[in-house]
Design a protein around this nucleic acid. Structure first.
Length: 344
RNA sequence: AGGCCCGUAGCUCAACUGGAAGAGCACCGGACUCCAAAUCCGGGGGUUGGGGGUUCAAAUCCUCCCGGGCCUGCCA
């Protein structure tokens, strides 16, 4: 197979389009960062990326309107601080482009009730909620609309999202078959996405919802990050053959944030049985903080100038809207709805 | 539209016929530990969903409101 170099000219039109949605959780943790955000940043190089802060997804479970806007803005600032470049990628807020929900409705009518009921994430999440909204049930359909509204063909996802992506493909296929070829085949970009575990309970995935001790925020103050690493669980019983989950988790953070020499050195010490965990923890804290400091500095700058973040989102929304409106026009035509369809 | 049940600490729940609101887990501090975990010692935490009423006394009884779950019916 012949591999061509990058085509300089028509590169932008040749680039594959990537879409990804990020929930405005309020505080990005290093699990989100290493698991997803670094990929977003990397993908900007070679792809036409559209990143959306998905507030319509956030309201599928109980939320407080008083805090949502601040969470959205904060997530935007975090993403920019982490290296999302608004000159190369589109960053916008989902609800600022109403076509998302319009397309979701159309897709609702192409989605089987049974399929949605089989979504494992719905089953998990609905058990945790006392009030299960129809929106929570419908979540994957909105997600399909998010992606396909821009006719994106690549979606960076974790394994837990594959089922939803498969549904998006089914929906697209059904639409294409019934109303005309319009949507591309969506492919996952499965990265080697490291799964960071909770420092306080390494048996569980790092997550905000488990509590304060169970995640390390990307923008968290140094003292607090140090404390969480220092008190991280290591060996729960006598040291066995295999590295315990807690220690493995610390090594994983080290691997992701430190230079390989230090990692190799400590790994060797571990194998030799001479590694003191205090030393490991200090190294992890130092290298993680070393990596986070520039991001935190940029984040502080943005905090002083949230107006510029708002501008980025405005510009992003208008660029996204342009694509969305154009595609939606065609989708309506194919479906036989909208004012255009009545014109002779 | 009608009927039944529920709401107590962050979570799961307890509190007899009305009689001083409690436990487990979680959280915080200390001991122990290379650090943690486990264990031990100590600690904080509640307008009992909200308003009104009955009573010497209400988580408990009455009433209205809010929120949630379930059943039946009606309509598009």
């Amino acid at each position: 197979m012949i591999v061509f170099g990058r085509l300089p000219d028509r590169a932008s039109s040749m680039k594959e389009r990537v879409f990804s949605g990020i929930q405005p959780t309020g505080e990005m943790h290093i699990g989100n960062y290493f698991g997803a955000v670094v990929n977003y940043v990397r993908l900007q190089e070679q792809h036409d990326c559209i990143y959306s802060i998905v507030d319509y997804h956030a309201i599928t479970v109980e939320h407080d309107p008083k805090f949502l806007p601040a969470k959205v803005l904060s997530m935007a600032a975090d993403l920019l601080a982490c290296g999302i470049d608004p000159k190369r990628a589109i960053l916008f807020v989902q609800s600022h482009v109403p076509e998302h929900t319009e397309l979701a409705w159309i897709f609702n009518c192409l989605t089987s009730f049974g399929d949605l009921g089989r979504m494992t994430q719905f089953k998990d999440k609905s058990e945790q909620q006392e009030f299960v909204s129809a929106g929570l049930f419908d979540y994957p359909v909105l997600q399909a609309a998010d992606i396909l509204l821009y006719r994106a063909s690549k979606v960076p996802v974790g394994e837990d999202q594959l089922q939803h992506l498969e549904l998006a493909r089914r929906i697209a296929r059904r639409f294409n078959g019934r109303f005309g070829e319009f949507f591309p085949e969506v492919e996952p970009i499965l990265s080697e996405a490291p799964r960071l575990m909770s420092p306080a309970d390494p048996g569980q995935k790092m997550s905000k919802s488990l509590g304060d001790k169970h995640y390390i925020g990307v923008m968290e103050p140094e003292a607090s990050i140090r404390e969480k690493i220092k008190t991280a669980v290591t060996d729960v019983g006598p040291r066995g053959e295999q590295m315990s989950p807690g220690v493995a988790n610390l090594f994983l953070i080290l691997k992701l944030s430190a230079d390989s020499k230090l990692y190799a050195e400590l790994e060797q010490a571990y194998q030799a049985g001479t590694l003191r965990y205090v030393r490991l923890k200090e190294a992890v804290a130092e290298s993680l903080l070393g990596m986070l400091r520039p991001l935190q500095a940029r984040r502080r700058e943005l905090e002083k100038d949230l107006g510029s973040v708002r501008l980025v989102l405005e510009d992003g929304a208008s660029r996204a809207r342009e694509i969305a409106q154009q595609n939606m026009k065609e989708i309506r035509r194919l479906m036989g709805v909208g004012p255009e369809s009545l014109k002779a």
